[in-house]
Simulated scan of single mutants.
Amino acid sequence: MPIPRRLLLGAALAAPALARAQAPWAPDRPVRLVVPFAPGGSQDVLGRLFAQAVSQSVGQNLVVENRAGAGGIIGAQEVARAAPDGHTLLLATAGQLTIAKAIGRRLPYDPIADFAPVIHLSDSPVALLAAPNLPASDIPSLLAFARRAPEPLPYASTGTGTNTHLIMEDLKARERLNVEHVPYRGAAAAFNDLMAGRIALMFVSVPSVLGFAGGQLRVLGVTSRERFPATPDVPTLIEGGVRDFEASIWTGVAAPAATPAPVVERWRREFAAALEGGLVKPRLEGLGATANGSGPAEFATLLRDDLARWTRVAAPLNISLD
């Protein structure tokens, strides 16, 4: 029995609409990738690498927008308030999405409820450094010395409430170390005092260690689960006897909350492909990072776990930055 002409005509008219409905979402104008740090740092370099790689594959420019200030809170606020249409993304770190809340900062957004996790891009461990005059040659001897030190050993951080502060406080609590905090504004001045023996210890990002020109830093351990490729001779703290002690400066991508799932999935695919591509992959080690690539569900779990960990560590410290 022949199909009525009106049904054929209706099917023909519906076909373009059905094709549009089934087509994957794609941005229809340039996309902002908000980097909540000033230009020139390792996170900015990483963001620009990904922006270049993803722009090539998605067919729209990802424009890096540096919105530094307040430890990254200004940039995160910009994204939290943006339309959830896939055209504004955040290059996210713990500083904005977990640590800020953990240390009690007054935030203009909820770091969990106001963002849609897209992908966990990379991890950069931190390195434990010791002063040249410290009588410890490895992690076990350092821990033993720091436990029995008659006076608190001064340790540096790159600022109160930063990763390097909280990671040391976590180690202090776990291993009952007699150390006290001396905050610095960045790593350079702390390196000088460490080399002179005015401070005893510090955690610092691996990119800072790799970029130190002197080559005289005593690196006792790193906080990754496995040895870090760029420093293969440096053991992990886990190898040194600190059970399950792992910490990283992670980087991910987040979108405004209520961004539709197909939009989140398109960005996950694009950034995952860039992570394995020839532009980004060869540069990661030099930036002190390793690829991760976990998707929205795993990234959301990381955010919750990270927030719980640093809230526990920060609770007895009575940090006040506002």
Rank of each mutant, 00 (worst) to 15 (best):
L121M: 04
S122L: 10
S122V: 14
S122I: 09
D123R: 15
S124F: 04
A127L: 10
A127Y: 06
L128D: 01
L129Y: 00
A130N: 01
A130P: 00
A131L: 05
N133E: 14
N133H: 14
L134R: 03
P135G: 07
A136W: 08
S137Y: 12
P140N: 11
P140E: 06
S141C: 12
S141D: 10
S141F: 12
L142T: 05
L142K: 09
L143D: 02
L143F: 11
A144S: 13
A144T: 12
A144C: 03
F145N: 11
F145G: 09
F145Y: 15
F145E: 10
F145Q: 12
F145P: 03
A146H: 03
A146D: 01
R147Q: 15
R148K: 15
R148L: 14
R148S: 15
A149K: 11
A149C: 11
P154L: 09
P154G: 09
T160W: 04
T164A: 09
T164I: 09
H165Q: 04
H165T: 05
H165L: 03
L166V: 01
I167H: 08
M168D: 03
M168T: 06
E169L: 03
D170T: 12
L171P: 00
K172F: 06
A173Y: 11
R174Q: 15
R174S: 13
R174I: 13
R176D: 14
L177G: 08
L177P: 04
L177C: 10
H181N: 11
H181V: 11
H181D: 12
P183F: 08
Y184K: 04
R185V: 14
R185K: 15
G186K: 08
A187R: 04
A188E: 15
A188R: 15
A189P: 01
A189C: 06
F191D: 00
M195F: 06
A196S: 14
A196G: 04
A196H: 08
G197P: 01
R198H: 13
A200N: 10
M202K: 07
M202A: 13
F203N: 12
S205E: 15
S205M: 14
S208N: 14
S208W: 06
L210N: 02
L210D: 02
G211Y: 04
G211D: 09
A213S: 14
A213T: 13
A213P: 01
G214L: 12
G215C: 00
Q216E: 13
Q216F: 05
Q216Y: 00
Q216I: 01
Q216H: 11
L217I: 00
R218D: 02
R218S: 00
V219Q: 02
L220Y: 02
L220M: 03
V222L: 14
V222Q: 11
T223K: 06
S224L: 06
S224G: 09
R227A: 06
R227L: 05
F228S: 07
P229I: 12
A230R: 02
A230N: 01
T231P: 00
T231H: 13
P232C: 12
V234C: 11
T236G: 05
T236L: 06
L237T: 02
G240V: 02
G241A: 10
V242A: 07
V242T: 08
V242I: 15
F245M: 11
F245D: 04
A247Y: 09
S248L: 05
S248N: 13
I249Y: 13
G252W: 01
G252Y: 02
A255S: 00
P256I: 02
A257E: 00
